[in-house]
Amino acid sequence: MKEIRFHGRGGQGAVTAAELVAVAAFEDKKFSQAFPAFGVERRGAPVMAFARISNVPIRIRSQVYEPDYVLVQDVTLLDVVDVDSGLKSEGMIIINTDRPTNQLKLKTDAQLIVLDATRIAMEVLGRPIVNTTMLGAFCGATREVSLGSINKAIAERFKGELGRKNLLAIKMAYERVST
């Protein structure tokens, strides 16, 4: 089983990102689960969401404490949240940032992937909503879900122009971390 923790701020779509991973993983014929750790649901407040992907039905309901993967949608969270808490050393953390990696205060030995998802989102969507862009990076860097299934999940969730734009943002992030 692979466990993923999403860190974001209220309004950035971290919960949606977790849900989309669950939908895509199921599309890949795996079992999946996604759920939020709801706090007080205010815009801008730190939020967490979780996803699990497994080859067998998932029964566990507790939160994810030792994730294989961590996605951080907002680099300013590093100042207020232990985003790498419990992250497995053989795991991976993907951070949306334009800061150089040596300026990121992390305690983990896990692989670090950075990308400027905000820039991609602004360029493609015209808004700093990075959840789908980060999914493209997750997909490219981990291959835990297929790009085709992520795209299908996105197309189901976001219709029309918005859907097409999100697919483009995903593609850009996917290629950015794959090369």
Partner: peptide
């Protein structure tokens, strides 16, 4: 509540 109402699962 939340654990089942807000979970995405098959």
């Amino acid at each position: 509540g939340f654990i089942l109402t807000h979970v995405y699962e098959p």
